[in-house]
Design a protein around this nucleic acid. Structure first.
Lengths: 137, 137
DNA sequence: GATAATTCCTCCAGTGACTAGAGCTTCAAG
DNA sequence: CTTGAAGCTCTAGTCACTGGAGGAATTATC
Protein backbone atom coordinates (compact mmCIF):
# COMPACT_ATOMS: atom_id res chain seq x y z
CA UNK A 1 0.00 0.00 0.00
CA UNK A 2 1.34 3.34 -1.08
CA UNK A 3 0.53 6.79 0.20
CA UNK A 4 -0.19 9.50 -2.33
CA UNK A 5 3.33 10.82 -1.75
CA UNK A 6 4.87 7.43 -2.53
CA UNK A 7 2.80 7.18 -5.69
CA UNK A 8 3.91 10.66 -6.63
CA UNK A 9 7.59 9.82 -6.21
CA UNK A 10 7.31 6.61 -8.19
CA UNK A 11 5.48 8.12 -11.15
CA UNK A 12 6.80 11.67 -11.16
CA UNK A 13 3.25 13.01 -11.03
CA UNK A 14 2.82 15.71 -8.40
CA UNK A 15 0.54 15.05 -5.46
CA UNK A 16 -2.05 17.72 -6.29
CA UNK A 17 -2.09 16.47 -9.87
CA UNK A 18 -2.96 12.96 -8.70
CA UNK A 19 -5.86 14.36 -6.74
CA UNK A 20 -6.85 16.36 -9.79
CA UNK A 21 -6.84 13.22 -11.97
CA UNK A 22 -9.05 11.51 -9.43
CA UNK A 23 -11.45 14.43 -9.59
CA UNK A 24 -11.44 14.27 -13.41
CA UNK A 25 -12.23 10.60 -13.28
CA UNK A 26 -8.98 9.40 -14.86
CA UNK A 27 -8.16 7.28 -11.84
CA UNK A 28 -10.63 5.70 -9.51
CA UNK A 29 -11.14 7.17 -6.06
CA UNK A 30 -8.56 5.43 -3.91
CA UNK A 31 -9.28 3.45 -0.81
CA UNK A 32 -8.72 5.37 2.38
CA UNK A 33 -6.83 4.68 5.59
CA UNK A 34 -8.58 4.90 8.92
CA UNK A 35 -7.50 8.52 9.05
CA UNK A 36 -9.00 9.25 5.59
CA UNK A 37 -5.73 9.24 3.65
CA UNK A 38 -5.54 7.74 0.17
CA UNK A 39 -3.92 4.32 -0.17
CA UNK A 40 -2.83 2.94 -3.50
CA UNK A 41 -1.87 -0.42 -4.97
CA UNK A 42 0.17 -1.66 -7.88
CA UNK A 43 -2.57 -1.29 -10.49
CA UNK A 44 -3.05 2.36 -9.51
CA UNK A 45 0.64 2.80 -10.17
CA UNK A 46 0.26 1.33 -13.64
CA UNK A 47 -2.77 3.40 -14.44
CA UNK A 48 -1.06 6.58 -13.36
CA UNK A 49 2.07 5.71 -15.35
CA UNK A 50 -0.16 5.22 -18.39
CA UNK A 51 -1.71 8.65 -17.88
CA UNK A 52 1.66 10.26 -17.32
CA UNK A 53 3.01 8.73 -20.47
CA UNK A 54 0.03 9.82 -22.53
CA UNK A 55 0.28 13.36 -21.15
CA UNK A 56 3.98 13.42 -21.98
CA UNK A 57 3.01 12.58 -25.53
CA UNK A 58 0.71 15.59 -25.44
CA UNK A 59 -2.63 13.81 -25.41
CA UNK A 60 -5.35 15.76 -23.67
CA UNK A 61 -7.55 14.48 -20.88
CA UNK A 62 -10.60 13.59 -22.99
CA UNK A 63 -8.35 11.54 -25.30
CA UNK A 64 -6.81 9.77 -22.33
CA UNK A 65 -10.22 9.08 -20.87
CA UNK A 66 -11.17 7.48 -24.18
CA UNK A 67 -8.02 5.36 -24.31
CA UNK A 68 -8.64 4.14 -20.79
CA UNK A 69 -12.19 3.22 -21.69
CA UNK A 70 -10.93 1.35 -24.77
CA UNK A 71 -8.29 -0.48 -22.80
CA UNK A 72 -11.04 -1.93 -20.67
CA UNK A 73 -12.56 -3.77 -23.62
CA UNK A 74 -9.62 -5.96 -24.66
CA UNK A 75 -11.68 -7.97 -27.14
CA UNK A 76 -12.69 -5.02 -29.31
CA UNK A 77 -10.76 -3.83 -32.38
CA UNK A 78 -8.20 -1.17 -31.71
CA UNK A 79 -8.99 1.09 -34.67
CA UNK A 80 -10.22 3.78 -32.30
CA UNK A 81 -7.04 3.81 -30.29
CA UNK A 82 -5.07 4.06 -33.51
CA UNK A 83 -7.24 6.92 -34.66
CA UNK A 84 -6.65 8.87 -31.46
CA UNK A 85 -2.90 8.47 -31.84
CA UNK A 86 -2.99 9.26 -35.56
CA UNK A 87 -5.09 12.38 -35.06
CA UNK A 88 -2.68 13.51 -32.46
CA UNK A 89 0.24 12.87 -34.76
CA UNK A 90 -1.34 15.14 -37.36
CA UNK A 91 -1.76 17.87 -34.76
CA UNK A 92 1.85 17.49 -33.64
CA UNK A 93 3.10 17.78 -37.22
CA UNK A 94 1.06 20.91 -37.77
CA UNK A 95 2.52 22.46 -34.63
CA UNK A 96 6.02 21.63 -35.78
CA UNK A 97 5.41 23.29 -39.14
CA UNK A 98 4.09 26.43 -37.49
CA UNK A 99 7.00 26.61 -35.10
CA UNK A 100 9.51 26.16 -37.90
CA UNK A 101 8.05 29.15 -39.68
CA UNK A 102 8.37 31.15 -36.48
CA UNK A 103 11.93 29.98 -36.08
CA UNK A 104 12.90 31.24 -39.53
CA UNK A 105 11.09 34.50 -39.05
CA UNK A 106 12.79 35.13 -35.73
CA UNK A 107 16.19 34.18 -37.13
CA UNK A 108 15.70 36.61 -39.97
CA UNK A 109 14.57 39.44 -37.75
CA UNK A 110 17.44 38.99 -35.34
CA UNK A 111 20.11 38.63 -38.00
CA UNK A 112 18.98 41.84 -39.68
CA UNK A 113 19.44 43.90 -36.58
CA UNK A 114 22.72 45.74 -36.25
CA UNK A 115 22.33 46.22 -32.53
CA UNK A 116 22.58 49.98 -32.42
CA UNK A 117 19.57 52.00 -31.39
CA UNK A 118 15.90 51.22 -30.99
CA UNK A 119 15.18 53.72 -33.67
CA UNK A 120 16.80 51.47 -36.28
CA UNK A 121 16.16 48.18 -34.51
CA UNK A 122 15.00 45.61 -36.99
CA UNK A 123 13.25 43.64 -34.27
CA UNK A 124 11.01 46.55 -33.45
CA UNK A 125 10.60 47.61 -37.05
CA UNK A 126 9.76 44.13 -38.24
CA UNK A 127 7.08 43.83 -35.60
CA UNK A 128 5.63 47.20 -36.49
CA UNK A 129 5.59 46.62 -40.20
CA UNK A 130 4.23 43.35 -41.40
CA UNK A 131 5.44 44.27 -44.89
CA UNK A 132 8.96 43.40 -43.78
CA UNK A 133 7.97 39.76 -43.30
CA UNK A 134 8.79 37.01 -45.70
CA UNK A 135 5.80 35.00 -46.83
CA UNK A 136 2.51 34.97 -45.06
CA UNK A 137 1.86 34.19 -41.42
CA UNK B 1 -11.92 57.69 -36.28
CA UNK B 2 -12.52 53.98 -36.09
CA UNK B 3 -14.95 52.05 -33.95
CA UNK B 4 -13.68 48.99 -32.13
CA UNK B 5 -15.33 46.85 -34.80
CA UNK B 6 -13.51 48.68 -37.59
CA UNK B 7 -10.22 48.27 -35.76
CA UNK B 8 -10.99 44.60 -35.32
CA UNK B 9 -11.66 44.09 -39.04
CA UNK B 10 -8.53 45.92 -40.06
CA UNK B 11 -6.17 44.10 -37.72
CA UNK B 12 -7.82 40.71 -37.46
CA UNK B 13 -7.88 41.01 -33.67
CA UNK B 14 -11.27 40.15 -32.22
CA UNK B 15 -13.26 42.83 -30.45
CA UNK B 16 -13.18 41.26 -26.97
CA UNK B 17 -9.45 40.70 -27.40
CA UNK B 18 -8.92 44.40 -28.10
CA UNK B 19 -10.75 45.25 -24.89
CA UNK B 20 -8.66 42.64 -23.10
CA UNK B 21 -5.44 44.21 -24.39
CA UNK B 22 -6.64 47.57 -23.12
CA UNK B 23 -7.27 46.03 -19.72
CA UNK B 24 -3.79 44.47 -19.76
CA UNK B 25 -2.27 47.84 -20.54
CA UNK B 26 -0.92 46.89 -23.98
CA UNK B 27 -2.91 49.64 -25.65
CA UNK B 28 -3.93 52.88 -24.08
CA UNK B 29 -7.53 53.37 -23.06
CA UNK B 30 -9.17 54.77 -26.18
CA UNK B 31 -11.00 58.06 -26.39
CA UNK B 32 -14.73 57.70 -26.15
CA UNK B 33 -17.64 58.97 -28.19
CA UNK B 34 -20.42 60.92 -26.49
CA UNK B 35 -22.20 57.62 -26.01
CA UNK B 36 -19.13 56.07 -24.33
CA UNK B 37 -17.98 53.98 -27.27
CA UNK B 38 -14.27 53.57 -28.03
CA UNK B 39 -12.85 55.60 -30.90
CA UNK B 40 -9.47 54.81 -32.43
CA UNK B 41 -6.98 56.54 -34.66
CA UNK B 42 -4.21 55.50 -37.00
CA UNK B 43 -1.57 55.07 -34.30
CA UNK B 44 -3.85 52.72 -32.38
CA UNK B 45 -4.07 50.68 -35.56
CA UNK B 46 -0.29 50.48 -35.75
CA UNK B 47 0.09 49.60 -32.12
CA UNK B 48 -2.46 46.84 -32.38
CA UNK B 49 -0.85 45.47 -35.55
CA UNK B 50 2.45 45.38 -33.68
CA UNK B 51 0.86 43.40 -30.87
CA UNK B 52 -0.88 41.06 -33.27
CA UNK B 53 2.34 40.41 -35.08
CA UNK B 54 4.26 39.75 -31.88
CA UNK B 55 1.54 37.38 -30.65
CA UNK B 56 1.63 35.55 -33.98
CA UNK B 57 5.31 35.06 -33.37
CA UNK B 58 4.40 33.54 -30.02
CA UNK B 59 5.66 36.27 -27.73
CA UNK B 60 3.76 36.51 -24.48
CA UNK B 61 2.17 39.61 -23.08
CA UNK B 62 4.95 40.58 -20.64
CA UNK B 63 7.47 40.37 -23.50
CA UNK B 64 5.26 42.52 -25.70
CA UNK B 65 4.82 45.02 -22.92
CA UNK B 66 8.59 45.24 -22.67
CA UNK B 67 9.03 45.68 -26.41
CA UNK B 68 6.47 48.46 -26.43
CA UNK B 69 8.25 50.20 -23.57
CA UNK B 70 11.55 49.87 -25.45
CA UNK B 71 10.08 51.21 -28.66
CA UNK B 72 9.22 54.36 -26.80
CA UNK B 73 12.87 55.15 -26.16
CA UNK B 74 14.17 55.34 -29.72
CA UNK B 75 17.56 56.68 -28.68
CA UNK B 76 18.51 53.72 -26.49
CA UNK B 77 20.44 50.69 -27.69
CA UNK B 78 18.34 47.83 -28.90
CA UNK B 79 20.21 45.02 -27.18
CA UNK B 80 17.21 44.35 -24.95
CA UNK B 81 14.84 43.99 -27.86
CA UNK B 82 17.28 41.60 -29.48
CA UNK B 83 17.55 39.63 -26.27
CA UNK B 84 13.79 39.20 -26.04
CA UNK B 85 13.65 37.93 -29.59
CA UNK B 86 16.69 35.69 -29.11
CA UNK B 87 15.34 34.20 -25.88
CA UNK B 88 12.12 33.47 -27.64
CA UNK B 89 13.95 31.85 -30.52
CA UNK B 90 15.65 29.50 -28.06
CA UNK B 91 12.28 28.59 -26.56
CA UNK B 92 10.81 27.98 -30.00
CA UNK B 93 13.70 25.69 -30.94
CA UNK B 94 13.29 23.73 -27.73
CA UNK B 95 9.61 23.25 -28.45
CA UNK B 96 10.38 22.05 -31.95
CA UNK B 97 12.83 19.49 -30.61
CA UNK B 98 10.34 18.20 -28.11
CA UNK B 99 7.60 17.92 -30.68
CA UNK B 100 9.87 16.08 -33.08
CA UNK B 101 10.58 13.48 -30.43
CA UNK B 102 6.85 13.11 -29.90
CA UNK B 103 6.35 12.81 -33.63
CA UNK B 104 8.80 9.93 -33.88
CA UNK B 105 7.39 8.21 -30.84
CA UNK B 106 3.85 8.45 -32.17
CA UNK B 107 4.92 7.25 -35.61
CA UNK B 108 6.63 4.28 -34.06
CA UNK B 109 3.71 3.38 -31.84
CA UNK B 110 1.22 3.61 -34.67
CA UNK B 111 3.29 1.68 -37.17
CA UNK B 112 3.77 -1.18 -34.73
CA UNK B 113 0.08 -1.72 -34.27
CA UNK B 114 -1.47 -4.37 -36.44
CA UNK B 115 -4.98 -3.03 -35.91
CA UNK B 116 -6.54 -6.13 -34.48
CA UNK B 117 -7.76 -6.12 -30.93
CA UNK B 118 -7.20 -3.84 -27.99
CA UNK B 119 -5.60 -6.72 -26.22
CA UNK B 120 -2.63 -6.64 -28.59
CA UNK B 121 -2.86 -2.95 -29.48
CA UNK B 122 0.57 -1.44 -29.51
CA UNK B 123 -0.84 2.03 -28.85
CA UNK B 124 -2.32 0.90 -25.58
CA UNK B 125 0.60 -1.32 -24.68
CA UNK B 126 3.17 1.36 -25.44
CA UNK B 127 1.35 3.78 -23.21
CA UNK B 128 1.11 1.26 -20.41
CA UNK B 129 4.68 0.20 -20.56
CA UNK B 130 7.27 2.89 -20.74
CA UNK B 131 9.87 0.19 -21.35
CA UNK B 132 8.63 -0.08 -24.94
CA UNK B 133 9.75 3.48 -25.65
CA UNK B 134 12.85 4.35 -27.56
CA UNK B 135 15.14 6.75 -25.73
CA UNK B 136 14.09 8.85 -22.81
CA UNK B 137 11.22 11.26 -22.64
C1' DG C 1 4.92 7.62 25.52
C1' DA C 2 5.47 12.51 24.39
C1' DT C 3 6.76 15.55 21.04
C1' DA C 4 8.23 17.23 16.67
C1' DA C 5 8.45 17.01 11.79
C1' DT C 6 6.43 15.58 7.87
C1' DT C 7 2.74 14.32 5.13
C1' DC C 8 -1.92 14.26 4.38
C1' DC C 9 -6.78 16.23 4.00
C1' DT C 10 -10.32 19.69 1.84
C1' DC C 11 -11.45 23.83 -0.22
C1' DC C 12 -10.52 27.87 -2.72
C1' DA C 13 -8.00 30.85 -5.83
C1' DG C 14 -4.72 31.76 -9.47
C1' DT C 15 -2.21 30.88 -14.02
C1' DG C 16 -2.39 32.84 -19.67
C1' DA C 17 -4.74 34.62 -23.18
C1' DC C 18 -8.48 34.87 -24.38
C1' DT C 19 -13.80 33.69 -25.21
C1' DA C 20 -18.75 33.73 -24.34
C1' DG C 21 -22.92 35.26 -22.41
C1' DA C 22 -26.38 38.35 -19.96
C1' DG C 23 -28.53 42.48 -19.94
C1' DC C 24 -28.40 46.95 -21.33
C1' DT C 25 -27.26 51.32 -24.40
C1' DT C 26 -25.88 53.64 -28.62
C1' DC C 27 -25.37 54.14 -33.40
C1' DA C 28 -26.35 54.07 -38.51
C1' DA C 29 -29.49 53.05 -42.28
C1' DG C 30 -33.79 53.38 -44.39
C1' DC D 1 -38.61 57.17 -36.16
C1' DT D 2 -37.93 52.60 -36.05
C1' DT D 3 -35.18 48.67 -36.28
C1' DG D 4 -31.23 45.87 -36.11
C1' DA D 5 -26.44 45.77 -35.65
C1' DA D 6 -22.81 46.92 -32.88
C1' DG D 7 -21.30 48.77 -28.66
C1' DC D 8 -20.95 48.83 -23.36
C1' DT D 9 -19.79 46.45 -18.55
C1' DC D 10 -19.40 42.62 -15.73
C1' DT D 11 -18.98 37.90 -14.74
C1' DA D 12 -17.62 33.34 -15.58
C1' DG D 13 -15.60 29.65 -18.31
C1' DT D 14 -11.68 27.41 -20.90
C1' DC D 15 -7.29 23.75 -19.95
C1' DA D 16 -4.38 21.25 -17.00
C1' DC D 17 -2.72 21.99 -13.45
C1' DT D 18 -0.40 24.63 -9.16
C1' DG D 19 -0.22 26.80 -4.73
C1' DG D 20 -1.78 28.23 -0.27
C1' DA D 21 -4.58 28.21 4.16
C1' DG D 22 -5.86 25.84 7.97
C1' DG D 23 -6.24 21.71 10.13
C1' DA D 24 -5.78 16.37 10.87
C1' DA D 25 -3.01 12.14 10.53
C1' DT D 26 1.16 9.73 10.33
C1' DT D 27 6.03 8.83 11.15
C1' DA D 28 10.43 9.68 13.39
C1' DT D 29 13.02 10.99 17.22
C1' DC D 30 13.99 11.30 21.99
Amino acid sequence: MLSIGDLSKRTGVKVPTIRYYEQMGLIEAAERSEGNQRRYERNDLERLAFIRHARDLGLDIPAIRELIALSQHPDQPCANADRIAADHLVAVREKIEKLKKLEHELERIISHCDGHSIEDCYVIRALSDHGLCEGEH
